[in-house]
């Protein structure tokens, strides 16, 4: 079976080799994957916001957002946090280990719709990972987008993800980065408070803007409230949701959210499509 045929079967994993593992914070790490020898022409492409099912042989499978640069073909980067069995074992991966990949799955951030508009990104915690490809796409095609504003909230300064990259974006003259931490600790001189407080005073001009939000669902709901309070409409907002995704193709139903399957119809949704469901308890 050729690699192309492999990818046409969404339930079949393809083997990828760990090139390096980078510790991002105390409980969060990134892995970079490369094709196995002989598979270098593997046609892996993804769009910002999509995810892979990452399979650890003998352990299990977990859905992880792809957080690399969509323009860099041939490698896959995942950032994840240790929250369960699979990610705990993922944290023990070493270069040259092999993992199985199915994907990419799901919907993407609306990059084409964002062209010509101001782009407002709101990320909380590890929610920055699924938005990282958006930042890559924007920085590589900077003239296609208007003002770019990133609001990012982390738990403490030690939990800030991609710190060097954030500092690089912040020092860029044509990107505006506002970071905050929930808890100020010694040595942190930046903003303290939840990310929603940044939205309240950020330099937002509602007219020609598009908003992409990724983070814990509570943060997401309150961020939407603040965005609406700044004069934007629900139709300008996109959110990335997380549910218990298993099959990745909308067959098993584990990730069902009302009429939607998050793995197939999401994870990126127009807010208008899921606004009602987000306020239903236990959905």
């Amino acid at each position: 079976m050729t690699m192309l045929e492999e990818l046409t079967d969404p339930m079949l994993t393809s083997p990828w080799v760990v090139r390096d593992v980078e510790q991002e914070t105390s409980d969060t790490f990134s892995i970079r994957l490369e094709p196995r020898d002989g598979d270098e022409n593997k046609p892996y492409r993804f769009r910002p916001g999509q995810f892979n099912m990452v399979y650890l042989f003998g352990v299990g499978e977990a859905p992880i957002s792809v957080c690399g640069d969509p323009a860099r073909l041939g490698t896959i980067r995942h950032t994840t946090r240790i929250v369960g069995t699979v990610t705990r074992h993922m944290g023990r991966l070493r270069p040259a280990d092999t993992v199985g990949i199915r994907g990419p799955f799901g919907t993407a951030w609306p990059m084409e719709e964002a062209e010509g508009k101001d782009v407002i990104l709101v990320a909380g915690g590890i929610g920055l990972a699924p938005l990282r490809p958006v930042m890559h796409t924007i920085t590589e095609n900077r003239d296609k987008f208007g003002r770019v504003i990133l609001f990012y909230g982390a738990r403490t300064q030690e939990d800030i993800l991609y710190r060097k990259e954030l500092e690089g974006w912040a020092s860029s003259l044509d990107l505006e980065v506002f970071a905050t931490v929930d808890r100020g600790t010694l040595g942190w001189h930046g903003n303290v408070g939840v990310v929603t407080t940044l939205i309240k005073r950020g330099p937002i001009e509602p007219g020609n803007s598009i908003v992409m939000i990724c983070g814990p669902e509570v943060m997401l709901r309150y961020s939407v409230q603040e965005i609406l309070g700044r004069g934007l409409s629900e139709s300008q907002i996109y959110v990335s949701l997380e549910r218990n995704m298993k099959c990745g193709i909308g067959h098993c139903g584990h990730c069902q959210l009302g009429p939607e399957f998050v793995c197939r119809d999401g994870p990126v949704f127009p807010y208008t499509r899921v606004a009602r469901q987000l306020n239903v308890v236990e959905l």
Binding site: P63, G84, V86, T87, C214, P216, V218, E242, M245
Partner: peptide, 21 residues
């Protein structure tokens, strides 16, 4: 209140493991 919730803190192991929180 949002700060008190410690939204980015320790999570229930039964929660999903995708790259988003």
């Amino acid at each position: 209140r949002l700060q008190m919730l410690d939204l980015y803190g320790e999570r229930n192991p039964e929660e999903t493991e995708r790259g988003t929180p």
